[in-house]
């Protein structure tokens, strides 16, 4: 079997003086879908930002291997070009930058080669159809005035274009209404069907996204540690009993 997409060993992360991740362990093999669930403030976005290399997140201990390479030595853009992708919980607005140019330059950076405009238009059209997006969308400015749903679709559009080998989706379901949730999830499924080796880490607060995307594993993050792992039934249990039950269970076992 090929080597794991991602290995996280005993990862400790601080923001400023504050310790947020306190020893996270996780392995994602190619093609596996992992769901990471946890209450607000448990450190889910911290994990995704740290994995993508945000400079505000300090790795104080631990190791992360991406396809066997030491991820922590790489700049965020190197991680991206190597095939890591993060769909942001809160995508940034960048005024004056047109979506079309942004997406084309992004794809060129990933491929390390020029993508002629005609070819790019064709690729873009296919991917946008996948996500039921209108063509006019790319004439707009990066996330400027986008609705919550448009932002998230745009994140997944980027994933579809970049064809990463590991995708981290940070609360892609938040801010989506029922229809948008279905379209986005179907889009994610379509991308992973085209790329059966893509590992996916779905970060979510609720289980509703997992109605569309069946995870192979479910993990619960609580106060900076993964305290419980299981299969998709764990997500259903959380849905039924809430995080409180898990918290009590965890606290009782210590």
């Amino acid at each position: 079997m090929s080597q794991p997409s991602l290995i996280i060993r005993d990862l400790h992360v601080t923001v400023g003086e504050k310790a947020i991740l306190k020893g996270v362990n996780l392995t994602v093999n190619p093609g596996e879908k992992h769901a990471l669930m946890g209450p607000n403030g448990s450190g889910k976005s911290t994990l995704s930002n740290a994995l993508m290399g945000h400079p505000n997140y300090n790795i104080t201990h631990g190791e992360v291997l991406f396809q066997g390479q030491n991820l922590l030595e790489m700049a965020p853009d190197e991680r991206a070009r190597a095939g890591m992708f993060l769909a942001f919980q809160y995508p940034m607005v960048i005024p004056g930058v047109k979506v079309f140019q942004f997406l084309r330059n992004m794809l060129q950076a990933r491929r390390g080669a020029d993508v002629p405009v005609r070819e790019f238009r064709k690729i873009l059209k296919d991917k946008m159809q996948l996500l039921e997006m209108k063509e006019e969308f790319v004439k707009r400015y990066l996330n400027e005035g986008f609705s919550g749903g448009e932002k998230k679709r745009h994140e997944i559009l980027q994933m579809a274009l970049l064809e990463p080998s590991l995708a981290i989706l940070d609360e892609t379901d938040s801010g989506l209404d029922v229809d948008a949730l279905r379209i986005v999830c179907e889009g994610i499924n379509a991308v992973s069907a085209q790329q059966p080796d893509m590992g996916v880490l779905i970060i979510t607060h609720y289980q509703r996204m997992l109605n569309y995307i069946t995870p192979d594993f479910v993990h619960v993050l609580f106060e900076g540690r993964i305290v419980k792992s299981g299969d998709k039934n764990l997500a259903l249990q959380i849905e039924a009993e809430g995080y409180d039950a898990i918290e009590r269970e965890v606290l009782a076992s210590v």
Partner: peptide, 21 residues
């Protein structure tokens, strides 16, 4: 960070933000 996470090098990302500005 957002732009770099999409594969833009730092200089390129800064230029893009500046142009947009």
């Amino acid at each position: 960070f957002y732009l770099m996470s999409r594969g833009f090098g730092q200089t390129e990302a800064e230029a893009l933000i500046t142009e947009g500005f």
